[in-house]
């Protein structure tokens, strides 16, 4: 006998929303990583990984298989993050807060335009090693497939790895120290500049893994704009969860994904971004500094 709950519309929405939500959570996490280490909201957080993914996955044309290309994409992500921090961002520390916003928006435009100029805006399908066809339970579709499981499992592995890095390693301690008290850390021998670069590298790499997952979806493919809407949802999740709370970013991302899946199923696809915007407005009204941050007094 089949289980009616497992194949119900609600169950399928929850699982589909979970998959999207993990993606939003990953983008939010990458935003939080940069925000915590350098106090900059990186508007090119979708475009930089997109570029890295094109660089890596472009090697598919040279008869490289999927997994080596993924690995090269991630390496490219680390590199782009590091170079960007050194070349573009370094001179912006301590400037008025609109300066980094403007520069990163400019970088977003340039990266998307250059990517469109080189690789065109036509979606490029990636040969995902997993089937996108939903599992069947008793002849009815269940809201998961091999591919979505791949997305969720990879997302969870990345989250756990980042958490472990920050919590259990010496490097993680240095990263946290450099963000929290740069002067003291420098005094104690932490290479603060190097830690900031590392924060950007990590963040872009997390973003690249997200982009690879999103673009490997049979129905999406890789385009220069592939991360635009996911970036918007990721930002909303990060703002709702609190820009300096990784846990908040993940929880908000997953909840947003599930809510929006119901919206798109029961209303229509236009309503998704509108509901997300309302979600952001209401949550900022209720809890301005984010749902998961401990409210802290601002020092003058």
């Amino acid at each position: 006998m089949m289980d009616p709950i497992l194949t119900s519309r609600i169950m399928s929405d929850v699982l589909g929303g979970l998959t999207n939500g993990v993606m939003y959570g990953l983008v939010a996490l990458s935003l939080v990583l940069v925000w915590r280490s350098t106090g900059i909201l990186n508007f090119a957080q979708g475009a930089m990984p997109m570029f890295a993914t094109y660089l890596g996955m472009g090697l598919l044309s040279y008869h490289l298989s999927y997994w080596p290309c993924v690995a090269i994409s991630i390496v490219a992500g680390f590199a782009i993050g590091g170079v960007t921090e050194r070349v573009l961002v370094r001179s912006l520390y301590g400037k008025p807060e609109i300066n980094p916003v403007v520069v990163m928006v400019g970088f977003l435009i340039v990266l998307e335009a250059v990517a469109s100029a080189i690789w065109s805006t036509t979606p490029r399908g990636l040969p995902s090693p997993f089937s996108p066809i939903d599992w069947q339970i008793g002849g009815k579709p269940f809201g998961l497939s091999d591919f979505t499981l791949y997305e969720i499992v990879t997302g969870v592995i990345v989250m756990v790895a980042v958490a472990a890095l920050f919590r259990f390693t010496k490097l993680g301690l240095q990263l946290r120290a450099a963000a929290l008290a740069p002067e003291v850390s420098r005094l104690l021998g932490v290479r603060v500049g190097r830690m900031l670069t590392l924060g950007w590298m990590l963040s872009t790499a997390v973003g690249t893994i997200t982009t690879v997952l999103v673009a490997s979806n049979y129905f999406t493919g890789l385009t220069p704009q592939v991360m635009d809407s996911i970036f918007a949802f990721g930002f909303i999740a990060a703002a709702v969860g609190g820009l300096d709370s990784p846990v908040g970013a993940l929880v908000a991302g997953v909840s947003l994904g599930i809510i929006l899946q119901f919206v798109s199923d029961y209303l229509n696809s236009n309503a998704i971004i509108i509901v997300a915007l309302i979600f952001l407005i209401v949550s900022l009204m209720v809890r301005p500094s984010g749902l998961f941050t401990k409210s802290s007094a601002r020092r003058v």
């Binding site: 916003v101 971004i273 915007l277 500094s289």
Partner: peptide
């Protein structure tokens, strides 16, 4: 009203979301 109460890039982010949502609206 909600965004200007906050320090930091919240207004930038929220207006970005509005700009992206506008075509859907």
């Amino acid at each position: 009203l909600p965004a200007t109460r906050l320090r930091g890039p919240y207004l930038a982010g929220m207006t970005l979301a509005f700009a992206v949502a506008f075509t859907a609206i």
